[in-house]
Computed example of a mutant assay.
Amino acid sequence: MPVSSPRRAAHRVQRSATHCCNDGQSELTSTLILGSMFAGWYAANIAFNLYNKQVLKVFAFPITITEMQFVVGSAITLLSWATGLLKAPKITGDTVRSVLPLAVVHTLGNLLTNMSLGAVAVSFTHTIKAMEPFFSVVLSAIFLGDQPSPAVLLTLLPIVGGVAIASMTEASFNWFGFLSAMGSNLTFQSRNVLSKKLMLKKGDAGGLDNISLFCCITLASAALLLPFSLFFEGWRLTPGGLAELGVTDPVQVLMWVFASGLCFHAYQQVSYMILQRVSPVTHSIGNCVKRVVVIATSVLFFRNPVSLQNALGTAIALAGVFAYGRVKRQASKKAAKAN
């Protein structure tokens, strides 16, 4: 058996060290990119909520506001496809049939969220939206046959209890805002269940990946909501229309609307980009942390009164969401090991 020369052995050691160094640099770069994406997701979502609430305070027409956010997102999508920044997908009849039900629930979810944001404090809307795991478990059990484990069911108790405690002492509480936020939970989780039901993965529905799917949903939502916006609210989002409503600075409001639309599209698209890099469970935990940041920021920015009981209820609900994410993550690891 031939013996390697000292020079050849040294070369192998050097090559191995270089390979390890490159792997380390690659992992560090990937971590930095993912961290930057999470930071952008949080920042865009915070900005969206702040701009959106300011607009809804002076222009209480949530259908029009939601439509404008879809229109801004659609313009960004078409521009990205035209310039080659994003690859334009091939739209077929199967694509339309698959995307349409998702667009319907996506439209309703965002519309109901805006209705809630217009009626109650931003912090309270996001506290109610912490109930999303509850709706996810119930709908998955009904339509997908997924039976939740006892550990998952236990995590739902603090979520439901925390939201109930927070609701009882919320200064801005009203049933319209509460039920709108609950409706958004139902529709958004219905969207997720529909995605699984239709198996909208890469290679299906015309070969749409996550980003292309989101872009197509945005375009479809803008088209779906436009006639309802015109019929129920008319088109008052013009300098003249705003002036008739008593808005003292129409240009400022229009700038807020555009900024909210930009942030709306940015945070949702970055969310889909993150979902391509991490597991759904990791994404849900990140979403929980994002909700905490949004609630804290909105309370500080709008100076909303928060009682000790309200803060305690919110904390309990969010702790339940975090526990739910951890339980689901452990279940995913066990399933991966079993396979």
Rank of each mutant, 00 (worst) to 15 (best):
N304H: 08
E170Q: 12
Q252N: 14
C263L: 05
M273E: 13
R277V: 08
S212Q: 14
S4W: 12
S332C: 02
S140N: 05
F143Y: 14
S298G: 06
S4P: 03
S284P: 04
V138N: 08
K333S: 07
S5Q: 15
E132L: 12
V105D: 02
A319H: 03
N310A: 11
S26I: 08
I33C: 02
V72M: 04
G93A: 06
F322P: 02
T187H: 03
V306Y: 01
A331S: 10
V193S: 07
S98F: 07
K87F: 05
G234M: 05
S149C: 04
P133M: 06
L186P: 03
R97W: 09
E132S: 12
P62W: 07
L208I: 08
M1R: 10
A338Y: 03
T113G: 10
L117D: 04
V105R: 01
A164Q: 04
C216E: 08
A166M: 11
L208E: 02
Q330S: 13
V58H: 13
T113R: 10
G35R: 03
S16M: 11
N192G: 10
E233R: 06
A222F: 01
S80E: 09
I65V: 15
G109V: 06
S16T: 08
P101F: 00
T64C: 06
L153K: 15
G118Q: 09
L208K: 01
R236T: 03
S284L: 06
S260L: 08
P148G: 04
F61L: 09
K334N: 08
F231R: 05
G40F: 07
F232D: 10
K334H: 14
N45W: 01
V137T: 10
V257L: 06
L275A: 13
G40W: 01
S74D: 09
A336Q: 13
V163A: 07
T218A: 07
H283C: 07
F70N: 04
R191F: 08
T107D: 00
S123D: 07
P280Q: 10
M68Y: 13
S260T: 06
M255S: 12
T113W: 09
C20R: 14
G118S: 09
A166E: 07
V71M: 12
V247Y: 04
I63Y: 06
V120F: 05
G240T: 10
F38K: 00
N174H: 04
A243Q: 14
P158I: 04
G183V: 06
I159Q: 01
K334F: 04
W41A: 00
N22Y: 11
T125E: 07
I211S: 12
G145C: 02
K197I: 06
F173Q: 01
D204A: 15
F70P: 02
A181Y: 07
Q268N: 15
A317F: 00
V160W: 04
M37H: 08
G313Q: 02
I65D: 05
F124W: 02
I91T: 13
L225W: 05
A223E: 02
R329G: 14
P280L: 07
Y51P: 02
P6F: 11
Q268G: 03
Q252R: 09
L78D: 01
F135M: 03
A39R: 04
S284K: 06
F214R: 00
K57Q: 14
T66K: 01
T169I: 05
M131D: 08
S116Y: 00
Q25C: 09
V294R: 00
T169L: 03
A44E: 03
M37D: 11
L139C: 05
A319Q: 10
N304E: 14
W175Q: 07
K337F: 11
C215S: 12
